[in-house]
Amino acid sequence: MSTASRPMARVGKPTGPLLRHRLADRGINARLLLLVPGLVFIVMLFVYPFLYGLTLSFQPMDGGGPFDSYRRFFEDSFQSSTIWKTLKLAIPSALFNVLASVPIAYRLRGKFRGKRFLTTVLVIPITLGTVLTAEGLLNFLGPAGWFNRALMSAGVINEPLPLINNYWGVFFSIVISGFPFAFLLILSYLSGIDPSLERAASTLGADWKERFRRITLPLLAPGLATTFCLTFVLAFSVFPSAILVGDPTNTTRVISIAAYQAAIEQYDWSFASAIAMIMGVIEIAVIGLVQLWRSQFYVGSTGGKGA
């Protein structure tokens, strides 16, 4: 219809409809207005607070230069050591979650009886959340808990293992809530790989090791990278369990505790924002490194539907 009306319209209004059509060709039309509410919302409640926090972090509460909040963080070893403590907790646990998920998901990717049940059971810890997991771990792994009791009555150990209120308590809490998440993601990435590719490889005489290394792993690499990033981000921001099952004044004083204490306990929003920005930068750096590693691998379709 536009081709018929355009010449006539051009006579009446030289640019009006023509401009509209030209914009429509580039994808700008009235439908874009549907995007406005969501976009306004994100700008107001995500972008603006973020920029506000960024400027606030350069305005220390007690005066001083613009970088004083950052300098305070890095000069005080009590604060700056939280970065190392957090990474020491987040990277091993995220790696464990991903690496343990791969063989299990590889083995369980086909159809078998009870798959739906297993995936349902594995979703439970994700929904339980870290607070409840922390409470359960305190009971279960505590000195008088079932775990230590079972080991002691089996004669494996003589004294209860110290598993809570230290590094390991937080580690277990990250594994319990993070492993199912990583497993389900990797399982769905694996199911997205076209099984006929592997069948073709086995027709050509590849054994399962070669099939895994040359077919499955390269196709899975992007999925592994994404899964690692997501579990790392979860583990990096570990907060409730670091307080409840950890040792929040010393070994598991992670960076989110430092940020929280600055914000809620000292009302020093400038310092808290600075810590939040440092957290963001470290996360982006780790995610960037992982994506860089990922870009070395095959990028494209995995043959599966919608993957």
Binding site: I42, L45, F46, Y48, P49, F50, Y52, G53, L54, L56, C229, L230, V233, L234, F236, S237, F239, S256, A259, Y260, A263, W269, A272, S273, I275, A276, M279, G280, E283, I287
Partner: peptide, 17 residues
């Protein structure tokens, strides 16, 4: 971004605002 970022990172500036 809001999905990829952990809540506590943007939560503190958001709470400030």
């Amino acid at each position: 971004l809001p999905i990829m970022m952990p809540p506590i990172t943007y939560g503190i500036p958001l709470a400030t605002v």
